[in-house]
């Protein structure tokens, strides 16, 4: 049995050689990083693929402009994460891919994203292309009939994803993930990788 002195020496040694626990991400780590699909979607400035964001840590979200609060809450949190990163904020990108390409034109999306941050990118495109991009993310969405005023409403995956600097999907986040946890994860990645 270890006495107190041995235990103390052990702890000091531990501290010296740094037996720290590995970093615990707030998001869910993918067992194996998955390359983001290299499929062009439509931005206001022309075709853009998720691979074009390589070099930055990139958050990917699927949503639509009609959604009055779930989508904006996520965008608002990511805007704050970027702001809190200070001068390293430009090492992070945010992309929202619409699940409502019929109503969300690249122009309308650009205006919507700029409301949060000038650097945020909105992507629209053919439904087939959006489905193909969404597939590796496990994107689920479907329209259901609304009223005369809403036309239709869309149920959609509210999880969002993080791509590393090489354009690989590495983490996914539940909609409720607190701002502080997102910030901690991104900061850890930017500072240690």
């Amino acid at each position: 049995m270890m006495n107190r002195t041995t235990w103390g020496v052990f702890m000091i040694l531990c501290w010296l050689v740094g037996c720290q626990r590995p970093y615990q991400f707030a998001g869910t780590l993918l067992p194996v990083p998955q390359p983001a699909p290299d499929i062009a979607l439509e931005s206001v400035n022309g075709p853009v693929s998720l691979r074009d964001f390589a070099g930055q840590y990139t958050f990917v979200y699927f949503g639509y402009r009609f959604c009055p609060d779930v989508c904006p809450v996520t965008m608002g949190k990511l805007k704050q994460v970027k702001a809190d990163l200070g001068n390293r904020g430009n090492e992070m990108a945010v992309v929202m891919i619409t699940v409502d390409p019929e109503r969300d034109t690249p122009e309308a999306l650009a205006e919507y994203m700029a409301y949060f941050d000038d650097s945020f990118v909105g992507l629209s495109g053919d439904p087939e292309a959006i489905d193909a991009v969404g597939k590796p993310f496990g994107l689920h969405y479907h329209q259901h009939q609304g009223s005369a005023a809403s036309g239709y409403l869309i149920d959609h995956t509210a999880r969002f994803f993080l791509l590393d600097r090489e354009g690989n999907m590495i983490l996914s986040y539940a909609h409720e993930t607190p701002l502080d946890d997102l910030l901690r994860d991104v900061r850890h990645l930017i500072e240690t990788q």
Partner: peptide, 8 residues
């Protein structure tokens, strides 16, 4: 299950 559903 991680899908946001809005309905009247």
């Amino acid at each position: 299950n991680d899908v946001m559903v809005m309905r009247p």
